[in-house]
């Protein structure tokens, strides 16, 4: 169940928009924060709070890639593999991470700490290659830098 605070937060979001459906996107972020990912229970609760049919929430959760429909590790590492980063070695960055973590892309470490993803452009092309871990950007990556970053999370 969503916490009281979360329900209140979702209710308050309705003040921002001319219709309650607009609240679905920010509400799903609340669900993701509360449950760690988008659960069916969470989606049904959002529909309930906003007076929508469940499908009106499900269809949003499945369309947008940032809503995790499955649990992810405590640290979600997303490496940009689009053109600017690829030109400067994104494939190599993915390989380095994959070896150091002992997992392939789309996998999570057994201790549930790290999930590795390859993603499209994150808008940080002047500091390629780069990756995002949770909300933070890590830029101008090298093998040494990755080593240090991972160490800080272990």
């Amino acid at each position: 169940m969503l916490s009281e605070g979360a329900v209140k937060e979702i209710n308050e979001l309705t003040g921002k928009y001319a219709n309650s459906r607009s609240v679905v996107m920010p509400a799903l972020y609340v669900v993701q924060r509360e449950y760690g990912y988008i659960t069916e229970e969470g989606m049904r609760e959002v529909a309930n709070i906003l007076g929508l049919r469940p499908i009106q929430v499900f269809e949003i959760a499945t369309f947008y890639t940032m809503y995790n429909k499955k649990p992810v590790g405590k640290y979600h590492i997303q490496v940009c593999t689009n053109i600017s980063c690829s030109l400067l070695g994104a494939e190599y960055i993915v390989d380095v991470l994959s070896k150091k973590l002992g997992i392939k892309v789309k996998e999570t470490t057994p201790d549930k700490k790290f999930t590795l993803s390859a993603v499209e452009c994150l808008g940080s092309c002047g500091t390629a290659p780069m990756m995002q871990i949770n909300d933070n950007y890590y830029e101008d990556l090298t093998e040494e830098k990755i080593e240090e970053i991972l160490k800080s999370f272990r």
Partner: peptide
């Protein structure tokens, strides 16, 4: 003015 966050869709 309100901020609305997208969720990963070009």
């Amino acid at each position: 003015i309100y901020v609305h966050r997208g969720a990963g869709a070009y």
